[in-house]
Each structure stands twice: as structure tokens, then as C-alpha cells.
């Protein structure tokens, strides 16, 4: 299997994500330059955190037009796994691969801190190694992570089981105090209807080694690897 980490101008979690995949998960991984128009040969593509194109217009709004995003869109439509972390989530929303969008945090400030999130569903390629209802300690670092969509979309997300992570307190309760940015329904991460594209604001790659305080995020990368291993076996 092969992982790809997209490098947009302004990506700054690309090295961190690469590090986790190569050193912690131990899988082959390449950087994919944003001017690339072809992503053949990859099994999973990660859009890392950062400030693509400076995020000057609106987070992710310029990145969606980069050449690589056409290729990533086709890759996703043909069933490839796409994970968007933080800025990557914002880009996926702007690109229409995921519904809704991310507004400024409700207190208008950047937040960098560990938060608790609850795993809502384990029936995605990104969460098979978690337990449903498991509470993870994973850091956030964003100024615009306030998930928003219209009522119908929210209802569809809920009924379709597409809400994968929610901000919660340490005991897994979904409360307003535990919501760091004002996201609708405490949403921290969602997937598409086909469940092969997932975006989340927290940074699992920052919680993948015990030396950093938490390793709750590593199962997300192992889930992908395990899922791909299964899929490759089936194909073979």
C-alpha cells in the first residue's frame, strides 16, 4: 500500500503526518506536490494541516483550485481513501468532497489545546480500530473550526451516520462547555456518504506517540493501514 501526503504551499503539518505514517505506522509514504495532476498508485491520500495559500481569502478556498485537487477529487470518486486534517478538512469542504464548512471559532480566537472527542462510528476505513463511544484525547489548533451547515444537511449527516467524531467532556458527554469552537452538534469530524472521505479538525498525528502525552490518534492511521491490508487481500 502507499500513502500520499499532499503539500500545498503553506501546509505545515505535512512533515508531522509523514513522520507518523513512516515511523509509527511503518508504511510507505510520499509527498505529493500541489501542482501534481496525477495521483495514480496511491491507496490513501492525506490533506495535512497548515495554512494553504496563507488561507487569506477563506480557509481552503484557494487550495481547492490547485491542480492536485482535481486529481484528488477523481481519486475519491473512484473509491480512494482521503483523510483531511484541520486545514485538510477545510479544503475538503471547499472542494465539495464533504458537506458544510468551517467558520471562525465562536470566541474569534485561535485555540491550541488538547480536547476530548468521542468516536461516534467505527464503520469507516479511518475508525475500524476504535471502539464506538471511545473518548480520545487529541489536540486541536485552529482559528476556524466551527463546523456549520444547513439544517437539511445536518439532518442527512446525522441520519446517514456521517458524524464520526464529536467534542465531548472527559467522560464522553456531549456538552456545550466541551465544544471548543461552537461547531453544530459538537461536530469534530464527518465523512461523506460513501464513507471513503473523512475530515476532522483535531490533529491525530499530534497524538500518536506517548512522548507527546497521548497516543489516542495513532489508531486512525492504523485503521487505514488495516483497512487497506484487508482490501488488498480481497483483491488478491
Amino acid at each position: 500500500m502507499k500513502f500520499g501526503v499532499v503539500v500545498f504551499p503553506g501546509s505545515n503539518c505535512d512533515h508531522d503526518t509523514y513522520h507518523v505514517i513512516s515511523k509509527v505506522v511503518g508504511q510507505p509514504v510520499n509527498f505529493i506536490w500541489h501542482k501534481e495532476e496525477n495521483v495514480e498508485g496511491y491507496d490513501a491520500i492525506i490533506l495535512p494541516g497548515g495554512f494553504s495559500y496563507g488561507d487569506y481569502l477563506r480557509t481552503g478556498a484557494i487550495a481547492r483550485f490547485s491542480p492536485v485537487m482535481r486529481a484528488v477529487t477523481n481519486f475519491a470518486r473512484s473509491g480512494g481513501l482521503v483523510l483531511g486534517i484541520c486545514n485538510g478538512f477545510q479544503i475538503l469542504c471547499e472542494a465539495g468532497l464533504l458537506p458544510g464548512g468551517l467558520l471562525r471559532n465562536r470566541d474569534l480566537k485561535f485555540h491550541c489545546e488538547h480536547v476530548s472527542i468521542r468516536v461516534e462510528r467505527t464503520d469507516t476505513p479511518f475508525t475500524i480500530d476504535y471502539r464506538e463511544g471511545e473518548v480520545l484525547s487529541i489536540p486541536i489548533a485552529h482559528g476556524e473550526g466551527n463546523y456549520f451547515c444547513d439544517e437539511q444537511t445536518l439532518a442527512d449527516l446525522e441520519s446517514g451516520g456521517q458524524v464520526i467524531f464529536r467534542y465531548c467532556d472527559i467522560d464522553g458527554r456531549i456538552t456545550d462547555e466541551a465544544n471548543p469552537n461552537g461547531s453544530l452538534g459538537n461536530i469534530a469530524g464527518i465523512c461523506n456518504r460513501e464513507r471513503n472521505v473523512l475530515g476532522l479538525m483535531p490533529h491525530p498525528e499530534r497524538a500518536a506517540e506517548s512522548v507527546l502525552g497521548s497516543r489516542d490518534g495513532r489508531a486512525m492511521f492504523f485503521s487505514i493501514a488495516d483497512y487497506l491490508t484487508e482490501r488488498l487481500k480481497k483483491r488478491a
Binding site: D16, H19, F110, H111, C112, A141, H203, R206, A208, L212
Partner: peptide, 9 residues
């Protein structure tokens, strides 16, 4: 809290 103090892991 307003500074990203974890990037670069």
C-alpha cells in the same frame, strides 16, 4: 492557547 505550541510534533 493562541499559539500553536504542538506543530512539528
Amino acid at each position: 492557547r493562541q499559539y500553536d505550541h504542538m506543530v512539528r510534533t
